[in-house]
């Protein structure tokens, strides 16, 4: 069986370094990944093209510069360059700039119930010659049937691949299986199904394996799991597991293990781990990117990080609502003050 891996170290992993990847980081990581045989490398601000902002964090280096640095390296080695776009944050014209630089895979992400806001972007991506991928985030918040209905909207708009995206790392092998098989049943046989994991409950690799068993053929992973919350499914671990299962990823186990250890691991101040807050993200079902924002809000307003995250879960806040983290922290601080 063949599985296509998209490495998201330089996109989801952007959260881990607070969107401060340098051109040197990108050149080193891209070279190591492509040399190891990674077929697709995604590069964007953690919150997608146009995500550089006060709300999500400003990029140290403009993502276009990072894309320009990576494009020739990937082209020479026969790997593809992918970008992420979240409608409402970035705009369709951001895709034009990415296409001009040499990106060939466009992943358009929406909350799992709002697929229709991506129709124009998916259509634009196809018109620009991209391989278009629909990305249904926070997939734990709806049942398999509703997720499949939304996937059909991305498919009808022109997406050749539709992802079940576990942004909160809240799915378990059984709930992954239900969703992937619902997508498999609802979508055209030629439409490829993808899966994106977060490791908040320690299930990143296991859930990804389960998704493939149920019919997913494209999956996301990142070296050393660099990514929001407790990070993603770790590329090097996943590749080793696939090798033992006899599944072909086209990626060399030792080369990717070396890339993860020697090139990627030294970059961030801290590597993602399943600490208390990351565990809460997965357990309560909160968008993984909220982690570091909640840490800062906790320090600024003197309220517990856990209380902030649990309150956000209670309010059923969705991806992109990072501004509500401050709002909740201010409110919790006021309540604490009133109670004191």
């Amino acid at each position: 069986m063949k599985v296509r891996l998209t490495d998201v170290t330089l996109r989801d992993g952007s959260h881990t370094v607070r969107h401060r990847f340098t051109v040197d980081d990108v050149v080193a990581v891209t070279t190591a990944l492509a040399d190891a045989g990674v077929p697709v490398v995604e590069i964007s601000h953690g919150d997608g093209l146009g995500g550089s902002s006060l709300t999500y964090g400003f990029s140290l280096v403009d993502e276009r510069e990072l894309l320009e640095a990576a494009a020739p390296i990937l082209r020479e080695r026969g790997s593809k360059l992918a970008v992420l776009l979240i409608p409402g944050i970035g705009v369709a014209t951001d895709l034009e700039a990415a296409a001009a630089i040499g990106a060939t895979v466009a992943r358009v992400a929406t909350h799992c119930t709002e697929a229709d806001i991506a129709e124009q972007h998916i259509a634009r991506a196809r018109a620009l010659g991209f391989e278009a991928v629909g990305f249904l985030m926070m997939a734990h918040m709806v049942g398999p049937k509703e997720l499949a209905e939304q996937a059909k909207i991305h498919e009808a708009a022109g997406a050749q691949v539709v992802y079940c995206t576990d942004s909160a790392g809240a799915l378990m092998p059984s709930t992954v299986a239900e969703r992937i098989s619902a997508l498999r049943e609802a979508l055209h046989p030629d439409t490829i199904i993808g899966f994106h994991a977060h490791n908040n409950l320690g299930l990143g690799v296991a859930n990804t394996i389960k998704a493939i068993e149920e019919g997913a053929r494209h999956v996301d992973a990142s070296t050393r799991g660099l990514g929001a919350g407790a990070g993603n499914c770790a590329t090097e671990v996943f590749v080793a597991v696939c090798d033992k299962l006899g599944w072909e990823t086209g990626i060399d186990v030792m080369a990717i293990a070396n890339a993860a250890e020697d090139v990627v691991a030294p970059i961030p101040d801290r590597l993602p781990s399943i600490d208390r807050s990351s565990l809460i993200l997965g357990w309560a079902g909160v968008y993984s990117s909220f982690l570091l924002h909640a840490q800062r809000a906790s320090a600024r307003y003197g309220v517990s990080e856990a209380d902030i995250l649990l309150e956000l879960a209670r309010r059923r806040v969705v991806g992109g609502q990072e501004d509500m983290i401050l709002d909740v922290a201010i409110e919790l601080a006021a309540r604490q003050g009133a109670g004191a």
């Binding site: 409402g88 944050i89 014209t93 119930t113 124009q120 972007h121 059923r316 969705v318 992109g320 609502q321």
Partner: peptide, 30 residues
């Protein structure tokens, strides 16, 4: 939805008086 972000960002500048504006819109299904 791109119209929303563009039109709003431009109003932040032309009417709000900001030198540079950015707008983000999120839909919440709660």
């Amino acid at each position: 939805i791109d119209e929303f972000t563009r039109t709003t960002a431009s109003a932040l500048e032309t009417i709000g008086g900001a030198a540079r504006g950015k707008a983000i819109i999120i839909l919440n299904p709660a």
